[in-house]
């Protein structure tokens, strides 16, 4: 079998703020920007890598009830809903740059006991974005 990861999904609550974070701060390419009924789907990827993150309105699926939608919104706000782990060869340099942009710092770079050095930020929607440098 020959299977790779193509798209992964993260919820967003503010398309413009997310675009500013993922494209302008992290340096991802905007590959697709789809709007429908007041909602927006943004497909972004790292230059040179096919796999992409699709930033998605969290309650676009009509099967999500109002109560579930409220729970999702609350979990996103309190920071327990979604996360992604990115990789870099220079976590300290990346941290300085991202912090300088005014992004919400969740963790300064540290050596984890499980063998990576990583840092973490919150994206504008409250998702946990960890950035690691494999040793």
């Amino acid at each position: 079998m020959d299977i790779t990861i193509q798209y992964t999904f993260l919820p967003h609550t503010d398309a413009e703020a997310s675009l500013a974070f993922y494209r302008d701060v992290l340096g991802f390419e905007l590959r697709k920007d789809v709007g429908y009924d007041g909602m927006r789907w943004l497909t972004l990827g790292a230059p040179g890598q096919d796999a992409a993150v699709v930033l998605t309105p969290p309650t676009a699926d009509p099967g999500i009830t109002e109560e579930e939608g409220r729970t999702i919104a609350e979990m996103m706000a309190k920071g327990t809903y979604a996360s992604i782990v990115l990789a870099t060869t220079d976590v300290d340099g990346v941290f300085e740059q991202v912090q300088a942009s005014g992004a919400e710092v969740a963790q300064e770079p540290i050596d984890q006991p499980y063998g990576v050095r990583d840092c973490a930020f919150r994206d504008p929607s409250g998702n946990m974005v960890r950035i690691q440098q494999p040793s």
Partner: peptide
């Protein structure tokens, strides 16, 4: 969101 900042 403020609570999240406290927790972080």
């Amino acid at each position: 969101a403020l609570l999240r900042r406290v927790r972080d």
